[in-house]
Write a protein that binds this DNA or RNA. Structure first.
Lengths: 240, 240
DNA sequence: GTTCACACGTCAACGGCGTTGTCATAAGGT
DNA sequence: ACCTTATGACAACGCCGTTGACGTGTGAAC
């Protein structure tokens, strides 16, 4: 039996046979367990063997449900998009709505960094994504942005949110050793540079260490929203 | 001999001994070969064993130069930064300088998309990176931004540039089939949605297809620069 | 010019990974 | 109650990063 014939689509499953340890597998259970594994034990804990152990089945049993680990991660990504958009409703205040949605997307993706790094750059064209495009464009057009402007700001908003999510998520995917070393580079290397050779770094060392310890996304988001607001004010006064 | 004693810093090397196949190793040669390997055969081709084969040495010889593959990646990242900073000189116009540097970094990273996706998120603490931090902070403080403001804007500027570079690079890394499918999603799926169910997408379809076909970075950069300029004007008028 | 410490390339091995071919067995339609 | 076959289990393959031991050629010292 070749690999392409091994996977059985979820709808066509007929015999739900428990594993030796008693669990009954399903696509849904595997996706949920994968997310739980990432959440509880870090991104590095996601291996087919460990996932099998967490599910109480042989690792190879997973290949009855997904062609390979990439297909499993895409299923996880799809679940993630659904969770992110669920429960968000626009209030009518465009700036607050975009701020809330941006921070929410950023946070939700960071909660599952392994899936986020693999997923952020993809355009799926699936229902959850389409609903988000429609909603964000609606917020911008409802605020009074002309169509061309709304599209441009939509593009910046979405790509910036996803790219920062990917960037921040990728640091969470590093090994424990690499991540702590990364964090310590600012106080240990940059904060100790002499003012003679590096005056600007030395003068701002304290602020630099504090600033680089957190994500730049909230500040970047505020700057984009401020620029958009300025643009909206300009549009309103010149072409009402 | 423990792992921490195995690596010899480049400056302290005394005996340059050729490998069986005749190549003389060096940090520089290893980094260059790594970039070439990634560029020619993709990021997935970067393994210690393949790198050893490309260099004509035993894979374990690399551990005389780098503690582990992560340290090697940091060296590669710094080489990319160095290539970007080479030739850039501030003119005194902070906004034009940051615009030029941002677009240049973005373009240079995209020229090595395979390496970019692996290294964009890393803080190297190495010479080229330190020089770039010093230079950008110098531009901002020279423009009159107070230290706290300069650090915040530096953070947004750098992370935005690198994260967009990683995002845009990752689409270039997809297989030909996946990338064309991704591009066609906008005209084929989004542009065909009916106005009844998706009024905002339908109303902006033409602009949407055109906008999503290019990178959002230039527009995002302009918005951040505009917000920074507004902030600078505010600082100058209230606390001169 | 000989000596000699040791830097550094090589070898072999370890444990872990994703994946696949094969087998056995229990589920469920008949 | 039977048979088919879906599906889980097992074992093995060929990768991977990394390490400890080894020995050889280098370059400094005299």
């Amino acid at each position: 039996m070749s690999a392409s014939e091994r996977v059985v689509p979820e709808g066509a499953r007929r015999r739900r046979r428990p594993t030796k340890q008693g669990t009954v597998l399903s696509e849904q259970l595997i996706v949920e367990t994968t997310l739980r594994l990432i959440g509880e034990h870090g991104a590095a804990a996601l291996t087919v063997r460990r996932l099998g152990a967490a599910l109480g089945c042989d690792p190879s049993a997973l290949y009855r449900y997904f062609r390979d680990t990439d297909e499993l991660l895409l299923a996880v990504a799809d679940e993630l998009i659904g969770r992110t958009m669920r429960g968000w409703r626009p209030t009518g205040d465009w700036r607050a709505d975009l701020r809330t949605l941006g921070l929410r997307m950023h946070a939700d993706y960071l909660a599952h960094p392994q899936a986020a790094t693999l997923t952020c750059a993809r355009v799926t064209g699936r229902t959850h994504e389409i609903r988000s495009v429609e909603a964000i464009l609606g917020v911008l057009r409802g605020a009074g942005f002309p169509d061309a402007e709304a599209v441009r700001i939509y593009h910046v908003f979405v790509d910036q949110t996803l790219s920062f999510a990917a960037l921040d998520a990728s640091t969470l995917v590093l090994t424990e050793r690499a991540r702590t070393q990364e964090v310590r580079t600012w106080p240990d290397t940059y904060a100790r540079l002499p003012a003679g050779t590096h005056p600007n770094i030395a003068a701002t060392a304290g602020a630099l260490v504090a600033e680089m310890d957190r994500s730049g996304y909230p500040a970047a988001l505020e700057m984009v929203l401020a620029a958009a607001a300025a643009r909206l004010g300009h549009v309103r006064t010149t072409a009402p």
